[in-house]
Design a binder for these strands. Structure first.
Lengths: 349, 349
DNA sequence: TGGCAGCTGGCAACCAATTGCAAAGGAACC
DNA sequence: GGTTCCTTTGCAATTGGTTGCCAGCTGCCA
């Protein structure tokens, strides 16, 4: 006896009403109780000022008495609006997204919107499915570090407002922090400590951000007269960092930047397991300043991103695009910052 | 010029159609192209076998040609179904939920459902708002470690299928692992190491799970002739663990269980900062085996929960309740397991 | 007191599907 | 070839709001 077959006779679809058997109240019930037309109820409830104060009050009282809740589907059908914004993160297990989510979440409820979260488990295919499904039911979409192709993102952005976080896609709004500020401080710091050769363990080849970080490192190193090389690249996880250990040891760098903290932690632990002392023999730096990056021994030095602002800024941008129609709002300029902890030290003699 | 005022004349609500200006295709367009009635299109697309193979093909071809996408709102309006399940976690920054989310997510896509995620940032008020909003648009709801009152949860469960993870609420389905298995192993292990007095740092007073864990510890300690006491309780975060350090030092226990890994990590770090050697002077154990619990020095010994199965089991349960109407499916029995790492050692002499 | 403008509220069409009922079509059987 | 029965399809009502248009009412001013 499934819900869909519902042989129970002419009482309409059972699934549409609450389990308790009572009909959900509609604006028609309110209209009857208040002695007005349903259209007036609709206006009273969604277009403030359109009806007289007296009628407004009568309708609000009736609505309260009947414990009315709008049917979001019925409202969305003609308007297409749901007061809901979607956020897709590429990997829910990456703590870097915590603050992005929190930032977007609080910004959403500040504006009486609801945030819908989805994750793609690092799979471009899953991400596309999730994005398409979400886009059908939300007013706008935020993609945090998406794995999708540029063209796919552009296609999504052609339908509803889309903002990309931590990546640049032509003709699509994006929120990206200025990596240069933090990197400059870090390189200056390393130079002071006597490092003359640094390495970069890159993220995924397709990662725009990984490339961006390398460019920044390279430029600043050149400027400081330090030699910089990419020694490896891999998946942006603890395990990916572990697997880069061999390549790091083969090189002659005395300090290593990793694409993110996850990789830095993996690298550090793998090297320590092999007897390498951090930071005496090698300095290690990550990016993002994620949860757990201070759990390690030594705690990780890292370049912090304003992750909370990523989320909040992206959400506000989507809302603006929704209101103004145009998406010409300037993104706030976001700065990265060096966080010095124990994984960096003087270059070995 | 907002969308809602839309003075642009008689072309209908602009927001309802895609930005590119073309109407979204409907079953009416398909009906026209295929030369059949819209109702036949509806049946072909959602009730397999209801129309002849020939017509089916014709309709599918037409749908493909027009690049048809169902309008989820229009479908949900008469049916009340969205093929969507909601999952609310009390704290997205708690890595314990990673696997719950992943488990529910994969189980959902296995059944062609979409998972909608929301978080309540440890606030009961936000949680209630999120739950109500979500419940309006999903077919069923999973609450992971909810902060809501029992009565509020029961109220939600009266409307649509609801499953609670990591908590027991009367008349509401719940997924809870048997903590006893892991605790028994842990206490036996501690007894072997010579510990005669253990302490428990509890979670929030309102946490059902914290109470459950303590009962288990107490029962097993009694059985092994070990003295067990609750020395503190607090918020289930790293910081909460830190703040319990003083109470722990005042006691005479040689081994401490913490309500979860987060607290255990906080406690350990605070004690280490004060010069206490772990595990030489004190053994520490957590619960959950979260991401990062092996980053610490020493890595944390903990009692692992089958978090992935929590999520998957809860989701399957909701789906079953949706199909069968009744919710008499037996929950799988889930076992906890001791994970020994470096934070436990022989009792000091 | 008459004319005009501005508010209010009602009517009805519309959004895009689903589904009960009934008619039409086809196959099988006598 | 006619009847019966089952399958396939069409018709139209329904889901619950939103909104353009219009009519009636009120108030203001002359």
């Amino acid at each position: 006896m499934t819900d869909t077959s519902n042989p129970g006779g002419g009482e309409g679809p059972a699934a549409a009403r609450p389990r308790n058997g009572k009909q959900a109240t509609t604006i028609y019930d309110i209209a009857e109780l208040a002695g007005v037309n349903p259209s007036t109820v609709s206006r009273a409830l969604s277009t403030p000022g359109r009806v007289s104060a007296k009628t407004q009050k009568r309708i609000e009282d009736a609505a309260a008495e009947l414990n009315y809740q709008v049917n979001v589907f019925a409202r969305a059908l003609p308007t297409g609006r749901t007061r809901t914004i979607g956020l897709i993160v590429s990997d829910i297990t990456n703590p870097a997204f915590f603050d992005v989510i929190r930032g977007a979440g609080t910004a959403a409820s500040d504006h009486d919107y609801t945030l819908m979260l989805a994750e793609s488990a690092e799979s471009a295919e899953l991400e596309l499915t999730a994005a398409r499904r979400l886009l059908a039911t939300v007013d706008g979409l935020i993609l945090a570090s998406p794995r999708l192709a540029d063209s796919e993102i552009q296609q999504l952005a052609a339908q509803k407002p889309v903002v990309v976080v931590n990546r640049n896609v032509e003709d699509v709004a994006s929120v990206v922090a200025d990596t240069d500020a933090g990197v400059a401080d870090a390189i200056r710091h390393l130079a002071t400590l006597g490092h003359r050769h640094i390495a970069y363990v890159a993220g995924p080849d397709r990662s725009w951000m990984s490339k961006r970080r390398w460019e920044s490192i390279k430029a600043r190193s050149d400027w400081s007269g330090i030699e910089a090389t990419v020694v490896a690249s891999g998946v942006p996880t603890v395990d990916g960092g572990r697997r880069s250990a061999a390549a790091v040891r083969e090189g002659s760098a005395t300090a290593v930047f990793c694409y993110n903290d996850l990789m830095a932690i993996g690298l550090m632990r793998e090297l320590q397991a092999a007897g390498v002392r951090i930071p005496e023999e090698l300095s290690i730096l990550g990016f993002d300043n994620i949860f757990g990056s201070d759990f390690t021994t030594p705690p990780l030095s890292t370049i912090k991103s304003p992750l909370h602002e990523y989320g909040a800024g992206a959400l506000r941008y989507v809302l603006d695009a929704l209101d103004k129609g145009a998406s010409d709002r300037a993104m706030p300029s976001l700065k990265t910052e060096l966080v010095l902890r124990g994984s960096t030290g003087p270059a070995p003699a």
